[in-house]
Write a protein that binds this DNA or RNA. Structure first.
Lengths: 194, 194
DNA sequence: GCGTAACCTTACGTGTGAGTAGGTATGCTG
DNA sequence: CAGCATACCTACTCACACGTAAGGTTACGC
């Protein structure tokens, strides 16, 4: 039943979707939707949760501990783009919707926070392995940029059905790892003195 | 008058905003809004256009031709984050709204396309200076990732009023330029052979 | 002083869609 | 077979907000 809801929300957006359509698509009647999932908002949150959980599981499932940082990142990215590629219709739009609606921002922020945390951990681990150390906030912004870039490419992938998830992951890896890798080695860019 | 509209759309989102509220905030009555700007959709597009134009002008105004690529990128990023920092309330939410609403996606895609084009031009220029060449599509994806990362950090900035735009630009520059710079020098990452 | 025209407001029509009340079939128990 | 509960649907209410029609107010021409 959530499948129907995800589909409808994806096609018409949160506001554009009508509960009647969700019910019709699910093959049941409207009061049943309310009986099982509650109000429209609760329904949307349920969708969001399920998709988020699925995605996190897909990524976690691809994680192999005790691998060098770059390979762990690679596995994570590949899992992520693979997931988006397989759920093009659902994920990207749910995600965009959730960002637009103030009410769901928290939900999404929590989800992103978990991912950022993982990436920060990864970077931190790699740094320690090199015997270097960087302030937490610095790492967090870098992680945020990487996650943001990844999300954007996820959007791009969702809009380009012909694109290959694996290839997209490789491209992301190029931008992300080369940049982050440089940073990890202590190379930094600084504004030119005027 | 557009100011009022931008403000209201920002706070409540496209659907959440009522024309009554826009009118009240602008200090006039509803029929006047319709007389001057037309329907709600047209009003929103007008807002979008103005903000987009302002932003493009801010960036274009900071552009200094005949500078090395990294400095041009730096100026662009600084202008961008400066703009978002100064228009926190307006830009990010307009942007998020425009992405969520299918009707405005084209509008936004065009805007982004122009930016991506500029970045591609920049990368291409830098590449030629090094006597190297890379397929257009490749460059485009890299540019897309960079623009996406920048947009994400823009969102982050809009949500963190205490953050400093200049510092954010520097961080972005670190991730972006170090990664892109490596790519420009022919360094690439490739998936590990299994 | 009076008509008229531009301009603005209040106050309304209307459609849409969230959420619900009340009715119907199916299956279980005595 | 009667009584009852569970599961479900049809049909409704109600609120909200877009877009507009009819009515007041100020300025100017005669």
């Amino acid at each position: 039943m959530l499948d129907a809801a995800v589909r409808v929300f994806s096609r018409h957006g949160y506001h554009g979707a009508s509960m009647d359509e969700v019910a019709e698509r699910a093959g049941i009647s409207k009061p049943m939707v309310y009986a099982y999932l509650g109000t429209k908002e609760e329904l949307f949150i349920a969708c969001l949760h399920r998709e988020a959980t699925r995605m996190m599981e897909a990524i976690a499932g691809a994680a192999v501990p005790d691998l060098p940082a770059d390979e762990r990142l690679w596995h994570g990215l590949r899992a992520f783009f693979g997931f988006v590629g397989a759920h093009r219709d659902g994920w990207a739009v749910l995600y965009r919707q959730a960002r637009a609606e103030r009410a769901f921002a928290d939900e999404l922020a929590g989800m992103r926070a978990r991912i950022v945390e993982v990436v920060v951990g990864m970077l931190d681990h790699a740094l320690r392995a090199e015997g270097r150390e960087v302030a937490e906030t610095e790492l967090e912004v870098v992680a945020y940029a990487l996650v943001g870039a990844t999300e954007s490419l996820g959007d791009w992938l969702a809009d380009h059905p012909e694109a290959d998830p694996e290839k997209t992951a490789t491209r992301m890896m190029n931008v992300a790892w080369l940049g982050a890798g440089q940073l990890l080695h202590g190379v930094t860019w600084h504004p030119p003195e005027r």
